[in-house]
């Protein structure tokens, strides 16, 4: 069983840790770095509650080894707000009531954020396609789609 000293840039700050090879990225974030905004849902690569951005692309952090993230950029939900100001995607979820229980929300927001980074004016279909790997059991997705549209409009 090998251990590795890794450096991962999380929300712009380089952080180091000594980890077992089998440690998952989601556990590195939650347990080593105490950043619990990233949730563990199904733990089987289905639900997307653990979504983070790895080098800008949304991925399921329960299905990435911490050592695979060594030397890479990770963005978590804690990185959205800047200087006390909500990111437009966060504001969109607030304004459009895009959450109920909140469990899927950090993953939903990061997937929505990544979509808007590469597609400033997504159609409803493109939004639904983008979030199809993120499961929500409360909202029926309608308000989540509206929240992403709200953020897109705010950024025009």
């Amino acid at each position: 069983m090998s251990t590795h000293k890794i450096t991962v840039t999380v929300n712009g700050t380089a952080r180091t840790a000594e980890v077992e090879a089998r440690l998952l990225l989601v556990h590195l974030l939650r347990e080593d770095f105490s950043m619990t905004g990233t949730h563990i849902g199904c733990d089987t690569t289905h639900c997307g509650a653990c979504t983070v951005l790895l080098d800008g692309e949304p991925v399921k952090s329960c299905t990435v080894l911490a050592v695979q993230a060594d030397g890479h950029q990770v963005m978590t939900v804690e990185g959205l707000e800047q200087g006390g100001k909500l990111d437009p995607i966060q504001n969109g979820f607030w304004q459009e009531h895009g959450l109920q229980c909140g469990y899927c929300t950090s993953g939903m927001m990061l997937t929505g954020y990544a979509l808007l980074q590469r597609n400033k004016k997504p159609t409803e279909g493109e939004i639904r396609e983008a979030i199809s790997g993120n499961l929500c059991r409360c909202t029926g997705y309608v308000n989540i789609v509206k929240a992403v549209q709200h953020a897109a409009a705010a950024q025009q």
Binding site: L54, P58, V59, K60, T63, E129, S132, G133, N134
Partner: peptide, 9 residues
């Protein structure tokens, strides 16, 4: 194949 998040990896 799977979903968009999985396809990123």
């Amino acid at each position: 194949i799977a979903d968009p998040l999985v396809r990123n990896r």
